[in-house]
Every structure is written in C-alpha cells, then in structure tokens.
Simulated assay, not measured.
Amino acid sequence: MSTETSPWEEHFGSRENQSHAAQLGMWIFLGSEVLLFTNLFVGYAVYRYYYPEVFVEASKHLETGWATVQTLLLVTSSLFVALAVHSIRQGKQFLTALVLLVAIGMGVGFLAIKGWEYWKHWTDGALPGEYYRLEDLPVRGGSLFFTLYFLLTGVHAVHMLVAMGLLGWLLWGSVAGKYTAEYHIPVEVGGLYWHLVDVFWLFIYPLLYLVE
C-alpha cells in the first residue's frame, strides 16, 4: 500500500479542512471588497445630500433601459454560476463548463453595454472633472455626479473583468477534468466572488439610474 500523501492532505489533513480554509479565506477577502464599495457608497450619499436636485437631473442623462438589461444579465449569470456549482458537486464536468461559458458570455454582454455607455457620455461631454462639457447641468454638481458615476461603474467593471478571468480559469479546469464531485472547492469560492460582484451592481444600479 502506498504511503504517499497528496499536497492537500499534507497541508490541511483532509479535504474538509481544505474546504473550510478556502471558504474562510474567500470570506475575509470578500469582506475587504465590501469595505471598499461601502466607502464609495458613503461618499456618493454625502454628495447626493449636498446636490439632490442636480443628481436627479444628471441621472436622467443615463441609459436606464440598458442598465436594466445589464442588471438582468448579471442576475441571470449568477443563476448559471449557481448551476455550475450544483453541477460540479454531481460530477458533471461538461455541464459545469457549459454553464460557466454562458455566464462569461453574459459578463461580456454587460461590459459591452457599459463600454457603449461610456462612449455616449464621452460624445455628450458628460465626463468627470475638468473634462465635463455638459451644458444642461451646473458644472459643480453635474461634474461631481459623473465623477462618482465613472468611479463606481469603473471600479465595478474592473471587478467584472477579474471575475470573468476567474470563471475562465474555472472553465478551463472543468474541461481539463481538474474538478470532480469530490474536489470542487475552487468552483465554490469562485462562485462566491462572482455573486458578490453582482450584488455590488444591485446597489449601484438604483443609486445612479433610479435617482428621485
């Protein structure tokens, strides 16, 4: 009988311990991400308090309809990521890879819409800081709104890119057979990150697009 132990047994003692360690590490990381976005949301709330009317008018220059489509894309993608976790727990590697691919595709659709929005704001002059050229709104409050808009959506877009890269890595691992019903910890913790990025958007969407 072989006495050779695998790396996870050597470091964690069991797969259960490895799973707990991975999940704890991910939750700590997610907590730091929550703190980052909480600071951004608090900053938004403070400036909205000082310029309520301007923020309402500035919000009307955003594409609420397309933002709703983006929201539907992300909510649906989270369902597919949850399905990926469920599938890999049952050892269905091909189905896991397939639904991860669909989720990535929805992420691409989300960022494509956001890129189009940025281009439209650029042509309209709805830009942050000294680049602000929108004549319909006061420079002070209007410029501040779009500074916060680009900051919130830009930071979120960066997180989306990271999350899509993570899903791509999980997709490759599923195709390569690295994950099974017995070992699927990366898929679970990767799914947690994707869900959190989606939750951030569920706060950003009403703050920016549904201002009243």
Rank of each mutant, 00 (worst) to 15 (best):
Y51L: 03
Q90S: 07
M106A: 05
V158D: 10
S6D: 14
V189Y: 13
N39S: 15
R89D: 06
L111K: 13
G173M: 03
L144V: 10
F37P: 06
G105W: 03
W119M: 12
A84I: 00
E16A: 13
E33G: 13
G168V: 04
L83Q: 05
E130F: 13
Y51T: 06
F94H: 00
V175I: 15
G168P: 10
F145L: 08
V99H: 03
G25V: 07
G31M: 05
F29E: 08
L79F: 15
W122E: 11
T147D: 08
G105R: 02
H121F: 11
T96P: 05
I113C: 09
V69W: 07
L208F: 09
A176P: 01
L98K: 03
W8P: 04
S59E: 11
R133K: 14
F150Q: 13
P186R: 03
V69Y: 05
V158F: 15
L101N: 07
R48Q: 14
A45N: 14
G190M: 02
S143H: 03
L24Y: 08
K60Y: 11
A84F: 00
W201V: 01
P138M: 01
H121I: 00
H86I: 04
D124E: 13
G105Q: 04
G31V: 01
L152F: 09
H20V: 08
A21Y: 12
W172I: 10
L166G: 06
G141H: 13
V211K: 03
V187I: 08
V155G: 06
E212L: 03
V139T: 11
G43L: 05
G190D: 04
A67T: 01
V139K: 10
S59Q: 10
R89C: 04
F110Q: 04
E188N: 00
T76Q: 07
L144H: 09
L148K: 11
V108Y: 13
A84G: 00
G105T: 02
Y149I: 05
S59M: 09
G13K: 02
L100D: 06
L134W: 04
S77I: 01
H11S: 12
R48N: 14
T64A: 11
L35S: 14
L210Q: 07
G190P: 08
E135P: 13
A181T: 00
